[in-house]
């Protein structure tokens, strides 16, 4: 447990020192969302209608863009193999990195989402659902994304490949996340959507680190 926490604090410290990643993900999120009113027109009713989808798609892309650095920097300078020698199972090391990824991208996106929801004229009923779906759903983005990041570790300029691998796997998260907000906006019961989203995240917690660890082991060999 100490090692686990030590890895998380290390990664957080590095994220703070090197900065950039969190800030870039946030700016990307903001910019993408801004493009939509410019693309489809400023009419409030239309924006309100597409707001949940736009927010989720933008969050998904922003989370994905920061993924290719998840293991890459540590892989290149030899830190990743040193980490695997810490005596902690590789799947737990991967989980520690996933948690850091969520703390440095998922959480900031979650906090920024309500502000952008206002810009998109989203109905007030949707705010709680937006926060809840993002809270439950963004960890799944980090978890699933870690597999793609680990698989493309030895690939030069793996970023595009990473998105090809990861985006199809993100679709269920997108669907349940948006449908949860939609239900709340239309005064329907959002609970089943949230439960399905939660089931997805809970199932991903043991499975994704395990699969990503297998891929990490491969690239170290």
């Amino acid at each position: 447990m100490n090692i686990f926490l030590a890895i998380i604090t290390r990664d957080l410290l590095l994220a703070v020192r090197q900065g950039g990643a969190t800030f870039l993900a946030l700016v990307f999120f903001l910019l993408t969302v801004t493009l939509f009113p410019l693309g489809i027109g400023p009419e409030p009713a239309i924006l309100a209608r597409v707001a949940p989808g736009v927010l989720w798609v933008a969050a998904l892309l922003a989370a994905m863009l920061s993924l290719d650095r998840l293991f890459q920097a540590d892989f290149e300078d030899g830190s990743l193999e040193q980490l695997t020698l810490s005596g902690l199972p590789i799947s737990l090391i991967v989980l520690a990195k996933i948690i850091t990824h969520w703390l440095t991208t998922g959480l900031p996106l979650l906090l920024a989402a309500p502000v952008l929801a206002i810009l998109l004229n989203m109905d007030n009923e949707g705010f709680a659902a937006l926060l809840l779906t993002m809270l439950i759903g963004t960890p799944a983005l980090s978890l699933i994304g870690a597999i793609g990041a680990a698989l493309t570790l030895t690939v030069r300029r793996g970023g595009v490949l990473l998105s090809l691998l990861v985006l199809p796997l993100y679709i269920p998260v997108l669907i349940f996340g948006v449908s949860g907000i939609d239900a709340a906006v239309h005064g329907l019961n959002a609970k089943p959507h949230l439960l399905l989203l939660a089931a997805l995240t809970v199932a991903a917690i043991p499975l994704c680190p395990w699969a990503a660890a297998a891929a990490v082991k491969l690239s170290l060999e």
Partner: peptide, 20 residues
């Protein structure tokens, strides 16, 4: 895992972070 905790490995790469 127990074996790994018992050893130090110095490879070709330094695993030193420039920001620290």
């Amino acid at each position: 895992e127990g074996h790994r905790a018992n050893l130090h490995y110095i490879g070709h790469q330094d695993a030193v972070k420039g920001a620290l």
